Amino acid sequence: MITDELIQRINELARKKKNHGLTPDELVEQKKLYSVYLSTIRRQVTEQLEAAGFKPGNQHSHHCHDGCCEHHHNETHKH
């Protein structure tokens, strides 16, 4: 769970790392806090996608019928 304290500690360690460097223990703590933060964000995004009807992890293939080899078409590309 992302709490204000978690965010504050992440920011505190980031500032300290930038200004003075971190001790080995602080580096371990920072890595753990980042892991907690990112796993929570990933879970929230997955839940939101599933609620919207998307099933993360399912591969949707992209088939172009105009012979292109790119998956992202720009505005001027005509099919």
Rank of each mutant, 00 (worst) to 15 (best):
M1G: 11
T3F: 01
E5C: 01
Q8E: 15
Q8F: 08
R9D: 07
E12R: 00
E12K: 09
A14F: 05
A14Y: 03
K16T: 10
K16G: 02
K17I: 00
H20Y: 12
L22N: 08
T23F: 04
T23R: 10
D25M: 12
D25L: 12
V28H: 15
V28K: 15
V28E: 15
Q30F: 15
K31M: 09
K31R: 15
K32M: 10
K32S: 11
L33R: 12
Y34E: 13
V36L: 15
V36Y: 11
V36K: 14
L38D: 13
T40G: 08
R42F: 02
R43Q: 14
Q44R: 07
Q44K: 12
T46K: 14
E47M: 10
E47V: 06
E47D: 13
E50C: 04
E50H: 04
E50S: 08
G53F: 05
F54W: 09
G57L: 10
S61A: 08
S61G: 01
S61C: 03
H65T: 06
H65R: 06
D66W: 01
D66T: 05
D66A: 04
C69H: 12
E70R: 03
H72E: 09
N74W: 00
N74R: 07
N74V: 04
E75M: 03
T76W: 00
H77Q: 06
